[in-house]
């Protein structure tokens, strides 16, 4: 049980870390504005993508057992510049996946 509690708290910590980063990521907002989200998430020859960047942060924070598997961006409503960003995080120790939803707006 205590192992499970520890895993749950670690996954929550990773989720908070990633959600906070995504919420404040102005480059992500800029990529949405410019319709270049996929490039920004996956990266290209010149730059690593956001998913790799986040996994680097997770590793540096000491949470090696967790990994960002995927990020997707979707507009919530057609007439409003509000976007939902879904982040899928896998805990390799328990083989479970957590989903976190961050809403950002473009002003």
């Amino acid at each position: 049980m205590s192992t499970q509690t520890m895993r749950a708290s670690e996954v929550s910590a990773v989720t908070n870390l990633i959600s906070g980063f995504v919420r404040r990521d102005e480059l992500l907002r800029e990529s949405i504005r410019k319709n270049q989200v996929e490039d920004y998430l996956q990266g290209n020859e010149q730059n690593s993508g956001l998913i790799d960047t986040l996994n680097g942060h997770i590793e540096l924070s000491g949470f090696e057992e967790s990994e960002v598997l995927a990020i997707s961006v979707e507009k919530i409503k057609n007439d409003e510049e509000l976007y939902r960003i879904e982040v899928v995080i896998r805990d390799h120790k328990t083989n479970r996946e957590e989903r976190s939803y961050v809403v950002v707006s473009l002003h």
Binding site: M1, S2, Q4, T5, A8, S9, S12, T15, N16, S19, R23, E80, E81, L82, S100, Y101, V102, V103, V104, S105, H107
Partner: peptide, 30 residues
């Protein structure tokens, strides 16, 4: 422990949802 685990996860989830609500509310207000 189970309750703690559940409430711990719930608190983290509600914090993210509340932050999303602030983002949306600020957008609508502005």
């Amino acid at each position: 422990s189970t309750n703690h685990l559940a409430s711990f996860k719930a608190i983290a989830k509600y914090q993210v949802i509340a932050s999303n609500a602030v983002e949306i509310a600020a957008y609508k207000f502005i």
